[in-house]
Amino acid sequence: MSKPRIAVIIGSTRETRFADKPTDWFMDKVRDHVELEFEKLDLRDQDLPFFDEKASNLWVPSEDPRAVAWQEKLAGFDGFVFVVAEYNRSVTGALKNALDQAYKEWNRKPMTALAYGSVGGARALEQLRLIAIELQMVPCRNAVHIGGGDFFKVSPLGQDAPISEIEDNLKNALDGTL
């Protein structure tokens, strides 16, 4: 029997994003997971248009082949981990657009996050969980948050230390999330 496939979706597409550092750390930690298979999906690598369909693909099939390709990619996953940057108390525009490009493909699948920002990405993750409920995903209680002093220790905005410097602070959250 194959392992459930979990997409790790990087929600920031900025050139100077911080997302790569925590994503690489997370992927390293889950590389040999005995029950789950993780695959990184970087929104930078997806050719997604701005959402411009007649309606959600729940009601009307999407016409843009780029949206259809995204939907087909998502359909192959059993759950999602979002790497969430907090932009102005919410998720990035790129992530919101990617979420809007599909509907059925998100349904009844668990989701959680690795969130970061000055308050650990908590406000963005709260918004993401509300969107996930509308998309009929199943938000998990636990998530990994990198915030406050830990964020500024590993962020280029602060000391730019390796994630290993704060790993002990993330271990319990990571264990609870997986």
Rank of each mutant, 00 (worst) to 15 (best):
V30Q: 07
T112P: 08
K104W: 03
E15M: 11
G149E: 12
Q159A: 02
H145Y: 09
M1C: 08
G79W: 02
E37F: 05
M1G: 14
E167Q: 12
Y116N: 07
P22T: 08
A122K: 15
I6P: 00
L135I: 07
E167G: 10
E39M: 07
A124L: 14
S56P: 12
K3L: 15
V144K: 10
D45P: 01
W70C: 01
R31C: 11
A143M: 04
A69H: 01
V68Q: 06
G149D: 12
P49F: 04
S56R: 06
M111H: 11
E39P: 03
R31H: 12
D78G: 12
E105S: 10
R89Q: 09
N107D: 10
D64Y: 05
K171T: 06
E105Y: 03
E105K: 13
I163K: 05
W106Q: 02
A98K: 00
I133T: 15
G93S: 11
L41P: 08
Q46V: 14
G149C: 07
V81H: 07
C140D: 01
S118T: 12
T16V: 06
G93F: 04
A173T: 02
A75F: 11
Q136E: 14
A143H: 13
W106T: 05
I10V: 15
G11K: 09
V144P: 07
I131H: 10
S118N: 15
T112C: 13
L174Y: 10
N142A: 13
W25F: 12
I133A: 15
E105A: 10
V83S: 02
G117E: 07
E165D: 11
W106P: 00
T92R: 06
K171A: 08
A69N: 02
P4D: 05
A98Q: 00
R44W: 03
T177N: 07
G79T: 04
L95W: 06
M137G: 03
D160E: 05
K40S: 05
F77N: 01
Q71F: 10
L130N: 14
